[in-house]
Amino acid sequence: MNDRSPDGETVWAQHSRLRVVPPVKPRKLAKVPFVELADGRLQGVVSSGSDISRVYVSSIAAGTHDYNCSTNNNRPCGGLYGSPCKHLRALAAEAVLQYGLDRVARYLRVDVPDGTELVDRLTGAHEPAPAAMVFSRFLRHLAYLEVPETTMPIPEMHWFPAEGAVR
């Protein structure tokens, strides 16, 4: 039974145990520890190659494809010369690894013909956007690793079955 099969209407309507959010694919997290499709943007955090305590917050808006890159303290990225910097390119590449090209392209509303890279198909311009929101979402993401475990049963998790990765 495939939850996302084309004839899935009744499956979707009448099943309780579904994996509505497809599981993401594993990828190396060192360079781009955080990627998400949220609030109408592909956004994430890219670790600086030169300073381990600095990160860049990069984002690309769905539809307009306007992009921004700055440090988490809102200092603009020096690599934005009228085209996406290396952080934005890394963000887009890792998003494709994590979610698959289809899902990212659909979200950003961009057409990516075979043999081209998603980031080269973006038509937007540099448009400053506040980094604080994305950075705080990243910190919230990291904070999950510090949430204590529990051995009390959580029966609500029966609604969230594990789904096999394709091997």
Binding site: W12, H15, S16, R17, V20, V21, T150, I154, W159
Partner: peptide, 30 residues
């Protein structure tokens, strides 16, 4: 924890499904 885990999973699903107005199939019972 039960409520937190439930709401977090639920909200993530709604977020990933936006815009729901144009979503093809809805997990209605779920």
């Amino acid at each position: 924890r039960r409520l937190a885990v439930l709401l977090d999973g639920f909200a993530a699903e709604l977020r990933a499904s936006c815009p729901i107005a144009t979503m093809e199939h809805l997990p209605v019972r779920r």
